[in-house]
Design a binder for these strands. Structure first.
Length: 482
RNA sequence: GGUUCCUUGGUCAAGCGGUUAAGACGUCGCCCUCUCACGGCGAAAACAGCGGUUCGAUUCCGCUAGGAACUGCCA
């Protein structure tokens, strides 16, 4: 059996859509699971949609996610170039289109917009056009005359009007359509560039692609691609059409959702590994019920037969959970490195950011969550005295006031403001007065933070704040409660 | 409109003729606890509908309904 070769063939039109990322992932996994090759091809045949820098985004994203390609524009292994505009320049597509013309499987078309309008009809609120094969009837001489006169032209596929065409998808099985549904799609555009429809067939064959992994949206044009392969006498690759990723409204994930691209997600504080892991599970499930997978583990576990056929909603809530799992499992040094910019933004005071980072690591799902956990370090926020009332701790404003007052001399006498020492002192204080720990620690924590929730307990916070600041805050609380 | 595809809890999903219909996220409750979180335990929550086939259908077939994709000189 020949080596598996898959490709990822994005258009450089902007950010990496998560659907695209998943297609790339699956193509990578299909290849790597069988120890095959993963190829990158740039499909830049639409001149108008090209976006400056988009190719770099593709490289960066593949590198960041670990989807390392074996071949591509920067790694020619003999079937290059790997950029379609360069292939076009070499005349590859026109050459093959002409072969089709010779076989009667394609033809020149000189129809202009005016003429094409006649083929259009409006049904409902949509405009559909089916080309009427007008130019197919042109004689060889007429065609040559028009060509010689420099008339603009396109080359169209010549599809039959009767019969059916069947193609096989690894997931969906055989899909059959009436040939009457097959439009004479354009193969070569009037600017000389091939359409995706043609270029992908020619390139996939020339590059020896064995498994075509792509989005579901291509399923309805696949019969036409099959006819192309057959017309050339080429072996048809295995097709694997992946289900769509949708938003909560079950519609195609769009920019409007705010998290439609890999770059969006990273900007929002998600980790690359979590995004890859999450996206792998949208439309595919492993045999085990494990959900946390590194890329290497995915390679081992990935069986493309387990890809599902129905669309999947992109559930950002679950992604957040998964991201949190990665956060917690993360090596602290790396966590700190990534968290530091956020910490520095919200904590200006001279506090031990590493200690704060440690407290926060198990409590956040994405980096921006840090803000709400640390915003009290620089200054105690405005808060209501009723916060001192806590049913379970059996505290209220009066009890808190008296506890805090009693505590001041104790805390003034204390020099070791480490968490352990403070906790020991306060526990002892509580025991001596026959208080429950919470009865004294709740007011302290409140006094010191002014918050309902904090990333650590009272003594942990005091360790970070230090003696002076802790006492100042407690005294301020006493004043507030008096 | 036409064509094609899809349809298990709110979401991701397992299941591939006989199951108390997994698991995860989320939700709720309890425990742990110097708050919250983590962690632990538990609960509620699903086979779109109708017909077949079959001793027996979530599973196979058909129809209906709903959804989606395609219907570009975009990919």
């Amino acid at each position: 059996m020949s080596k598996v070769r898959t490709r990822f063939a994005p258009s450089p039109t902007g950010r990496m859509h998560v659907g695209n990322l998943r297609t790339a992932l699956y193509a990578y996994l299909v290849a790597k699971h069988e120890d095959g090759d993963f190829i990158l091809r740039i499909e830049d045949t639409d001149q108008e949609r090209l976006v400056e820098g988009a190719v770099d985004i593709i490289y960066r994203t593949l590198a960041a996610t670990g989807l390392v390609h074996d071949e591509g524009p920067d790694k020619d292994k003999g079937v290059g170039p790997y950029v379609q505009s360069e292939r076009q320049e070499q005349g590859i597509y026109l050459e093959y289109a002409k072969k089709l013309i010779e076989k009667g499987e394609a033809y020149y078309c000189f129809c202009d917009d005016e003429r094409l309008k006649e083929c259009k009809q409006v049904i409902g609120d949509k405009e559909i056009s089916i080309y009427d094969k007008h130019c197919l009837s042109l004689s060889k001489e007429e065609v040559e005359a028009k060509l010689a006169a420099g008339m603009p032209y396109v080359i169209r596929q010549n599809n039959p009007r009767t019969g059916t065409t069947t193609f096989h998808d690894e997931l969906y099985g055989d899909i059959t359509v009436d040939n009457a549904e097959l439009d004479d799609m354009i193969l070569i555009k009037s600017d000389g560039f091939p359409t995706y429809n043609f270029a992908n067939v020619v390139d996939d064959h020339l590059m020896g692609i064995t498994h075509v992994v792509r989005g579901n949206e291509y399923i309805s044009s696949s019969p036409k691609y099959n006819r192309l392969y057959e017309a050339f006498g080429w072996e048809v690759p295995k097709y694997i059409h992946c289900p769509l990723i949708t938003n909560e409204e079950h519609q195609k994930l769009s920019k409007r959702s705010g998290h439609s691209s890999y770059e969006d997600l990273i900007e929002q504080g998600f980790l690359t590994e979590a995004v890859v892991n999450f996206v792998a599970l949208l439309g595919w499930s492993p045999e085990s019920d494990n959900e946390i997978f590194s890329l290497d583990e995915l390679v081992k576990a990935f069986d493309y037969h387990r890809i599902s056929k129905s669309p999947a909603v992109f559930d950002i809530t679950k992604l957040k959970w998964m991201n949190g799992e990665y956060m917690k499992a993360m090596d602290f040094d790396r966590f700190y490195e990534m968290a530091e910019p956020y910490l520095k933004e919200y904590v200006k005071g001279d506090y031990d950011l590493k200690k704060i980072a440690k407290m926060v690591q198990t409590r956040i799902e994405i980096f921006p969550d840090i803000k709400d956990h640390v915003d009290f370090f620089d200054a105690v926020p405005e808060y209501d005295s009723s916060m001192y009332c806590h049913k379970k701790m059996k505290t209220n404003q009066e009890s808190s006031l008296s506890v805090l007052k009693e505590l001041v001399p104790v805390l003034e006498a204390q020099d070791d403001y480490s968490n352990d020492a403070l906790f020991e002192t306060l526990s002892k204080f509580a025991a001596d007065h026959e208080y429950k720990n919470g009865y004294v620690l709740w007011p302290v924590r409140t006094a010191v933070s002014g918050k309902q929730m904090t990333p650590g307990g009272a003594t942990e916070l005091m360790e970070i704040l230090g003696k002076e600041e802790s006492l100042a805050r407690i005294n301020a609380a006493i004043a507030k409660l008096s």
